[in-house]
Design a protein around this nucleic acid. Structure first.
Ligand SMILES: [Mn+2]
Ligand SMILES: [Mn+2]
Ligand SMILES: [Mn+2]
Ligand SMILES: [Mn+2]
Lengths: 205, 205
DNA sequence: TTATAAAGTTAGACTAGTCTAACTTTAAAT
DNA sequence: ATTTAAAGTTAGACTAGTCTAACTTTATAA
């Protein structure tokens, strides 16, 4: 629910079910149990919303997920495209000491390997939307990649092939009016063309 | 079942139930499902045994458990008394790559932080019973601690307090006939008395 | 050899989580 | 303002895993 929530913080039962691979009656049934635990604010026939306490619970799991991803990359040598599936499981380990130790060994990082913010131990999360998309910047500008709007496996492999990572410094040379694609330079690469689809998902500053 | 099995490789349903906190009918019911998966050799009213494939499956989970314990101690700085509860959860992560990476970073260890053998990736496990108990050695002998017969939290904390760990070299000074307790020297400690209960659980060579 | 206690199994019930089919509400479109 | 399609809920069924109570088998001891 947390990650599917729109700007108003709500998700439809059908979208949630689709994303979880579960029928809408199952969503309906489970969401009421979560409401009984004060994790979901449930109003019949209305879009689903987390309560404050539900958002906090979600943020704390996301914290464990992102700390794990960071640990896997920084301390265990995995690639950023490998860590999500592993973290998806490790995030469920119940041991504050385990994650506190990761945090300490990593030097209290604020973002995960994909540039997404790591919620605080209190469950507050900084909003990523402050970052701008590469596609919104102008030719002539020099920018640095600080995050990804989405980080699917395909996208990460695409970036790997082109040697694009967090902190890569790009110079924008040209924008194609027709399809919005950008031509950029970075590192020792010259005149690399990035489609609008790609440029929309690269967050820069 | 694996760890409760006796010398003939069998456990009683009641002991298994007690250890798992579950009734004997639940054991009975589950054990037949495991038999259908060829993990348990089930004969009505007879003691329970794992099949070869059940033993292998068990050994592979124990491998993950012990690799995790080793990683937690060696790479994350936990004490040997802290790692079991965490490993009890991490052992269930399904990711060969994750445990393969731990193994590599640790330099392919053969024993866990308590001296218990780590099963091979193929599921073979070396028998710990080749080790001798401290209580079977004689006054005048010098021995080195290589394992623990059991590693409950209380026992580990007891050893911590006395500065006894794996690789500690002990000189046996005296055995009390009455209660079997041993007086030993080690490191800078002199005339330390260890009860028979303790000496039975220290494995040495 | 038989009686009896312990161990194990069967029967039947209950909960959590899921499903499909049928029904109700909401919201979009005439 | 009505109609209708989409979204959501209810009803009822099913599975996995558990329990207690009653029954059966095994093993021990007279
Ligand atoms: Mn992730
Ligand atoms: Mn997960
Ligand atoms: Mn352990
Ligand atoms: Mn476990």
């Amino acid at each position: 629910m947390f990650s599917l929530s729109d700007a108003e913080g709500s998700v439809s039962a059908s979208e949630l079910g689709r994303s979880l691979g579960v029928s809408t009656p199952s969503v309906s049934s489970m969401v009421r149990k979560l409401a009984a635990l004060d994790l979901v604010a449930y109003v019949k026939y209305q879009p689903l919303k987390l309560t404050a306490s539900g958002r906090k619970a979600a943020a704390l799991v996301i914290r464990k997920h992102r700390l794990t991803e960071m640990f896997l990359v920084e301390k265990m040598g995995f690639g950023w495209e490998e860590v999500h599936v592993i973290a998806e499981q490790v995030e469920h380990v119940k041991s504050p000491a385990f994650f506190a130790r990761m945090d300490k060994l990593l030097g209290y990082p604020t973002v995960d390997p994909h540039g997404s913010p790591i919620p605080s131990p209190e469950g507050t999360i900084t909003d990523l939307r402050k970052h701008q998309k590469l596609s919104d910047r102008q030719p002539g500008e020099k920018v640095r990649i600080v995050g990804l709007a989405h980080s699917s496996n395909d996208f990460l492999l695409y970036l790997n092939e082109r040697g694009i990572a967090l902190k890569t410094a790009l110079t924008i040379l040209r924008r194609e009016i027709y399809d919005g694609s950008l031509t950029v330079n970075y590192d020792d690469k010259k005149d690399v063309v990035l489609s609008k689809v790609v440029a929309d998902k690269l967050l820069v500053e």
